[in-house]
Write a protein that binds this DNA or RNA. Sequence first.
DNA 1: GCTATTGTCAAGAGAAATCTTGAATACTTC
DNA 2: GAAGTATTCAAGATTTCTCTTGACAATAGC
Lengths: 236, 236
Amino acid sequence: MTDHRAKAALYDTLAEAAKALANGRRAELVDVLAQGERSVEELADEIGHTLANTSQHLQRLLRSGLVQSRRDGTRICYSLSGPVVLTLWQTMRRAAEEHVAGLQQLAEDYLGDRSQLATITRDQLRERLRDGDVVVLDVRPEPEYASGHIRDAVSVPVQDLKSRLGSIPRGADVVAYCRGPYCVYADDAVRLLNQNGLTAARLEDGFPEWVMAGLPQVQSTSTSRARPRSTNEGAA
Amino acid sequence: MTDHRAKAALYDTLAEAAKALANGRRAELVDVLAQGERSVEELADEIGHTLANTSQHLQRLLRSGLVQSRRDGTRICYSLSGPVVLTLWQTMRRAAEEHVAGLQQLAEDYLGDRSQLATITRDQLRERLRDGDVVVLDVRPEPEYASGHIRDAVSVPVQDLKSRLGSIPRGADVVAYCRGPYCVYADDAVRLLNQNGLTAARLEDGFPEWVMAGLPQVQSTSTSRARPRSTNEGAA
DNA sequence: GCTATTGTCAAGAGAAATCTTGAATACTTC
DNA sequence: GAAGTATTCAAGATTTCTCTTGACAATAGC
């Protein structure tokens, strides 16, 4: 009976892990961090909030232990503390999909109608890659491609896709992938490709799932990332 | 850009699943519900809070969708909505173990020193059960045994163990199991058995993990549980 | 050293969560 | 249908969370 206090403290601390994810903005941050390390500024941009606010959310995550940070020059880069955090995020998503009312509707509101989009599973893509008869586009922002991508994939951030349509061979079978099931980049890419007469499909889940499945990838080895100071090359 | 709002709404709703678990008392409730369906009163007792407060926590869980409720006579029984909720809870625990600072210490404070306790893994127990040379004790409260237990296990709630020591064959190899890694019942049982000259080990995790692993169990089939009105039979 | 860049800290207003208390509701049993 | 049991509802005090604003700190490059 005297350990009511100890028991409460233990479960309070277990709940800390959930509290870290118990906020929409922090969930967005974890979703982005699942793609790899990012700076505070980039993350603030991603979630559309102020630097100060984003910094505070990141520190909440940091205090929980689910993410870690390191200095890289003037920037501070945050990343997930380990694979179990990614698993936790994916499991939470799955639990919400199955049981949280209204999620399907909200997903549809945000993602739009996916029924016209061709999709392809991880296993199917792996086979196609083995056969070599497919062009794989990584349509996430470039830094995410830089910190890790599917082997043989080409980086074409979705914003740049329109201007780079010409570089995709006519008649090619294209597969686009992005962050995961709740990311619109691959959807947008496939729609744009289809409009331009290309056969394209969306990988049904994203890069983190590819990594978790142990499939072939290219991982950034440099701890200190090369920052594009002259940032014009990507736009050409 | 216009779908900032839709994106925020989507991630806010994803975060609802985390909010449901983002409280120590609700975490305790989920941990108990992982053993099977329980009434509000029983649950209030388990977490040591008032009925009203427990009811409110349960309704928070209910609203999140992670648990469900059904009426059974005058009582209302709550249970987890599906296996993914159990997975979520287990993953959260694992994430906290690996990354939340101070958890190890708190666990030790609550659980005490486990270094002297023999433990046995699921796989080891499965083999021992096949060989039939082991006595398996389910030392959880009786209702949890009733709603599901390891096949061939005997219900001996840890409170009753002392008075029922005589019924355990001398020289038997005993394995005790309970709710899971953060439950003290099996620890207490093994200590008591050891003090009485019996060879005993604790199953390293609990009944939910056994079920998740697809190992042989007995599951309550009756939807409406037989309530012990004359509650004296178990104490004999 | 000086300045620009990047991130954090601190304080405060508004909203949400937590727990308590006492009253109300729904079903069972007599 | 009256009484009893089990649970929920409602209101309120306290604490925690969230976001904003403006000041402060650390590093890079000159």
